[in-house]
Design a protein around this nucleic acid. Structure first.
Length: 404
RNA sequence: GGGUCGGUGGCAGAGUGGUCAAAUGCACCUGACUGUAAAUCAGGCGGCGAAAGCCUACGGGAGUUCAAAUCUCUCCCGGCCCA
């Protein structure tokens, strides 16, 4: 499934993942379509930029419009008019994000965890939903997802050793249930999946503790050997979760150092929720194949633009790697790109494109002054232009990472 | 001409003797955002200063008072009503 090549400079894995909907070249970045839409951009435009896979969210699509409805619509691909591949996050991240947010806003957690699953309180009407590992799989199967994620618990940071330990073990037990349920459902419907079944990924947890990260990885990888009644297949890929939840930046690199050597080489590795360009480059060099992040779209909507620093030649992964510097705190910075805030006054009369060398729709047709004007007048077209540009930047980054 | 109400920071608009360099909103400036409850959130927004603080300010001027955006007189300007 994956062709692995060692560049000699750093470990980078160049290959392909084949899903039931098509081929995805690794390493790759996924734009986020939480609710079945990449905010402000059409699937056609996403495809035009070059993306082959987008991410949807189990929890959000379950509540609205409902996985049954999407199933009746012919699946999420058809529903949102996307003919590439789709990866769905299990709802595990919402255990973290909605729980923390409700706690901050209302003093009570919006999520209650039990052995059975995660009980959510819907923020819009207060109604309660129980998301179990089995339910999460069922929803993702209904959505027609190409890559399904196990329901996990994504603990916040800071997290005590004891809590992280408890949490990782719950994630393992849930992963086992997901694995079992997934294969049972697949084998129950041989016709439906005769042309290919979705893939199932587990998620490594363990917070910032070396032995817990390793333990989590080990426990999950053992699952394929267990007698689970279904086909004796292992995971189709392994995700690393629970990062970028507020921990010090250098912890990310440590976690990758602890976990990636333990992973099977022939299976894709997915670093969930990451990240900044330098983090993506570093992670690719550490052997990660897949990324997703809200940064290009969310920060784009908030006016931050990513662009290449023309002072440096960055056509290959080696060029990019050379421009990354590690600070004393372990934090990494990169010279190969820069960010600007388009709302800044200095762009008021800047009638040049964001990046004269960029061939994206925004750069080919519009000036910074115009885009700034759109932002200040809250015109949605501005969000669209910057989102397209930022996603193009991330796409170009991933293309460069495929070049030796 | 008479009566009446009013003139507050870029705008709108509170405040009606001290705790007022002046609420709040908008605008403006800057920053944050990592498996999206995010077109969101935070900070700043008279001048000088790192700060303590000092100076200049609630239409103009003159007063009362220890103290005035707030009270008095006068001038200027505006709304409404009457002639």
């Amino acid at each position: 499934m994956l062709t692995i090549e060692d560049s000699g400079f750093c470990q980078s894995r160049i290959g392909q993942i084949e899903t039931k909907s098509g081929v995805v070249d690794t390493p790759f970045f996924m734009p986020i379509a939480t609710k079945g839409s990449i905010k402000h951009i059409s699937p056609e435009e996403i495809k035009q930029i070059g993306f082959q896979l987008v991410l949807g969210n189990t929890y959000h699509l379950w509540l609205r419009p409902g996985d049954d409805l999407i199933d009746r619509a012919g699946g999420l691909h058809k529903f949102m008019n996307w003919d590439g591949s789709i990866l769905t996050d299990s709802g595990g991240f919402q255990v973290f994000s909605l729980g923390a947010r409700a706690k901050k806003n209302f003093g009570i957690s919006g999520v209650k965890l039990t052995e059975k699953g995660a009980e959510f309180i819907d923020h819009t009407d207060g109604s309660r939903y129980m998301l179990t590992p089995e339910k999460s799989i069922d929803i993702q199967l209904n959505l027609g997802s190409d890559i399904i994620l196990c329901l996990d618990e994504c603990p916040p940071y800071p997290c005590s050793y004891e809590d992280a330990d408890k949490s990782l073990k719950l994630t393992t037990r849930w992963a086992k249930r997901c694995f079992e349920h997934f294969h049972r459902q697949i084998s129950k419907n041989p016709k439906k999946y005769s042309k290919g079944r979705p893939k199932l990924f587990c998620i490594v947890q363990g917070s910032v503790y070396e032995d817990l990260r390793k333990e989590s990885t080990k426990q999950l990888l053992e699952i394929e050997f267990e007698k689970l009644g279904g086909p004796k297949e292992g995971w189709d890929g392994i995700a690393i979760g629970g990062v970028a939840v507020g921990e010090p930046r250098k912890k990310l690199y440590q976690i990758l150092d602890w976990v990636t050597p333990l992973l099977p080489k022939d299976k894709p590795r997915y670093l969930m929720g990451l990240g900044r360009p330098e983090e993506v480059v570093s992670a690719v060099c550490a052997g990660v194949d897949m990324f997703d992040c809200v940064i290009p779209t969310r920060e784009g909507r908030h006016g931050r633009i990513f662009r290449w620093n023309s002072k440096y030649k960055t056509e290959t992964i080696s060029d990019l790697k050379k421009q990354i510097k590690s600070g004393a705190s372990g934090e990494k910075t990169a010279n190969f790109y820069e960010t600007i805030n388009i709302t800044n006054e200095k762009f008021k009369e800047d009638f040049s494109p964001i990046d004269a060398n960029c061939d994206c729709y925004a750069c080919k047709n519009y000036t910074k002054a115009y885009i700034r004007h759109l932002f200040r007048t809250k015109e949605a077209f501005g969000f669209r232009l910057v989102s397209i540009h930022n996603l193009t930047f991330y796409y170009q980054l991933m293309q460069k990472l495929k070049m030796k």
